[in-house]
Design a protein around this nucleic acid. Structure first.
Length: 678
DNA sequence: TTTGGTTTCAC
DNA sequence: TGAAACCAA
């Protein structure tokens, strides 16, 4: 308890007392002030949706009561700028230390880095920890020390790391409370009146909070886990772990999950239980995907906004809000898709398989911009998670090096018979089809008139005809791809001719503005007109969190030097433009700066200009290419990335014929420019 | 055991 | 779609 100064433990998405390294460090250091800052405006577009906020509310209440039983309580602050709130709490409690656990989404990386820089400058000792991953992203590299770009290789490496993930920490026995007599909590409003009714229903199915999370984990491991591989292909199965929302808010530690599952694995291996082992591997793989989503987000901070494969920026998406609405309402005419969308709307939950079905339909059949779909998921899913959803949508869209082929369309009719062979799932969520025999349940448009009549269905009236025919979708997809490759080719030609300005800006397709009515009519509380916050954090760095990070910091500095030539790798305290005169951080932090660019623009040119204005003269042509691109801006080692994708034209994943046919697709945007400027 | 046809499932 | 696993002769 050095000199009476207490520590602030800043809770974010680590709402647990067990295996919480930041909390443990705080307790070890003496008196603790537990703090949660609610600053949703910082999330820009990704203001949490109704169900997500409901969960957060419950979870915080639960955490608070746990902390109370341990000797302290949770201080809550309502803020538009987390960093200044932190400072305020430091001032009012006399804290001398700040502890928190790492997050890896782009916004948090920037904010946390800023927090660290700023508070350190104020004389506060800031330390941060890994509480969310088995391994920190910068610890997992290939034989050449470069980040992986495919999941399989990444996960294989994780499972064979030379050191095990940290063992979970026990919860503290007792917490000495810091002096909060001059630090009051703000009341936090997570729902408005119109939402309360819908939210009340959620409580019947879910109970947020770390102890429920723990219970869910135990239940799953001792029950459904062993059948996981058998059951995972059913649309309906009650055999998923249902851990994802708990994991999203960090109510249960992924390391604990991993350790407990490993114990079962050993047990079943000894018993020669093949199915059990297989199940464990599959379940761990889904944990691995979660890890990988953070890994991707860390290495490619744009991955929630832009395709990782650059050529996709030329894809002519169908900007059709009517389609979008039909999809959201579950009125596409494809029963499995519609059932899924109705379930999502009604419950905030969707089985993993069905997420694949509806999102694949969205991207491949409707050819709507995937960010719209991802945003809708964000708004409606109980376990909405930016990194995981970005990975999922990019995978589905075929915009990852190891994603599905872009030109492949899955037929919802066949998927229907695969995942819902008896049509039970469809009947549950589409009562209008309840009386249709299984033979036709997944393709009512083929059913004889007499069958439809008997089932009380009038296609086009009480259930829609297919919004888009699969064959038509295939044809249109081919055309779109042809167009995409042509655009891509002429862009390359332009670049090679030295007229880089060329088509560099044709990236509008990747940043089509969100439609105004992205929410279902019933849900109207979302903030409007938040501009995409893309590119606002481009000159920020990786979190330079732990001492083990020195290497990363160096490499990042290199990257930054390349990016912003004039700045010698000092971390810009201002997230947006280090070219601009520094402003008083306290009053004009990151988000204010972003909002300064809040011009109401609904098309990309406006957006481009808004951003370019702010980046002022630094927008050299190269830089602009960059701005339009998906470059890992503060990737830990941008230079090695560029080698990987530019030096080797066949790039990674030569096994995929699709990629062979389109070797350009290996390039994760613009790394060429990156290496050239360096 | 080899071979070739079929099934499965992709992050 | 296509690589890998599977299976039947």
């Amino acid at each position: 308890m050095s000199g009476g100064g207490c520590s602030i433990v800043w809770f974010r998405r680590d709402l647990r007392v067990e295996d919480n390294p930041a909390l443990a460090a705080g307790v070890r250091a003496g008196a603790v002030v537990a703090l949660f800052v609610w600053a949703p405006e910082e999330e820009g577009h990704y203001y949490p949706g109704r169900v997500s906020r409901w969960w957060l509310k419950q979870s915080l209440a639960h955490l608070d009561s746990s902390l109370r039983s341990l000797g302290t309580s949770l201080i809550t602050k309502r803020s538009t700028d987390s960093v200044s709130s932190l400072l305020e709490v430091v001032k009012s409690t006399g804290a001398t230390q700040l502890f928190f656990n790492h997050l890896y989404d782009p916004l948090s990386l920037v904010r946390d880095h800023r927090a660290k820089e700023f508070l350190t400058a104020q004389g506060i000792a800031v330390r941060s920890f890994n509480a969310d991953l088995l391994y920190e992203p910068w610890d997992v590299n290939d034989a050449y020390g470069r980040p992986f770009t495919t999941f399989a290789a990444f996960w294989e490496r994780c499972l064979s790391m030379p050191f095990d993930p940290e063992a979970p920490l026990l919860p503290p026995k007792r917490i000495f409370s810091g002096d909060v007599s001059r630090c009051s909590s703000d009341p936090l409003a997570f729902e408005d009146e119109s939402e309360k009714g819908s939210n009340a229903l959620l409580a019947r199915a879910w109970s947020p909070g770390w102890s429920s999370a723990d219970k869910a984990l135990t239940t799953f491991i001792n029950g459904p886990l062993i059948e996981y591989s058998k059951n995972r292909r059913k649309a309906d199965s009650a055999t998923t772990s249902f851990l994802s929302p708990h994991l999203h808010f960090g109510e249960v530690s992924v390391r604990k999950v991993f350790h407990l599952v490993r114990i079962k694995q050993v047990l079943w291996a000894n018993e020669g239980n093949k199915a059990g082992e297989e199940s464990v591997n599959l379940f761990l793989k889904s944990i691995g995907l979660r890890e990988y989503s953070r890994y991707l987000s860390f290495n490619h901070p744009y991955s929630h906004e832009r395709p990782l494969l650059g050529h996709l920026k030329f894809f002519p998406w169908v900007v059709n809000e009517g389609y979008f609405k039909a999809w959201r309402q579950g009125r596409t005419g494809y029963p499995l898709v519609d059932a899924g969308m109705r379930e999502l709307w009604a419950t905030g939950w969707l089985h993993d398989r069905i997420r694949v079905v509806v999102s694949s339909f969205f991207v491949k059949v409707l050819q709507l911009p995937w960010r719209w779909g991802m945003k809708y998921f964000w708004d409606t899913l109980l376990d909405a998670d930016l990194e995981s959803d970005a990975l999922g949508w990019q995978y589905i869209s075929g915009t990852l090096p190891d994603g599905r082929e872009f030109d492949r369309i899955d037929n919802p009719q066949f998927e229907g018979y695969k995942f819902d062979p008896n049509g039970e799932y469809v009947r549950r969520w589409l009562p209008e089809l309840a009386r249709l025999p299984t033979e036709w349940i997944h393709h009512p448009w083929n059913a004889p008139e007499s069958v439809l009549q008997a089932a009380g269905i009038e296609l086009g009236s009480n259930y829609p005809l297919p919004l888009v025919e699969i064959d038509a979708a295939k044809a249109r997809l081919q055309e779109a791809l042809t167009e995409m490759w042509q655009l891509e080719a002429s862009s390359r030609a332009a670049i090679e001719n030295g007229t880089e300005e060329g088509l560099g800006d044709s990236s509008e397709s990747t940043l089509i503005a969100f439609p105004q009515d992205i929410q279902m009519e019933e849900n109207h509380e979302l903030p409007r007109n938040n501009p995409p916050t893309t590119r606002c954090y481009e000159d920020q760095m990786v979190p330079s969190m732990t001492s083990s990070l020195v290497r990363v910091e160096e490499e990042t500095s290199m990257g930054l030097r390349v990016l912003a030539e004039e700045s010698r790798a000092e971390v810009p305290a201002d997230a947006v433009v280090n070219q601009e005169p520094r402003r008083d951080l306290l009053n004009q932090g990151t988000m204010q700066t972003i909002h300064r660019n809040t011009l109401p623009h609904h098309n990309t040119p406006g957006l481009q200009h808004a951003v370019e204005d702010s980046t002022a003269e630094s927008s050299s042509s190269t830089r602009r290419e960059w701005d339009g691109g998906i470059v890992p801006v503060w990737s830990p080692s941008p230079s090695s990335y560029s080698e990987q994708f530019v030096g080797d034209e066949n790039g990674i994943g030569t096994s995929s014929s699709y990629l062979q046919r389109h070797p350009q697709s290996h390039q994760i945007m613009n790394c060429r420019q990156l290496s050239q400027t360096g």
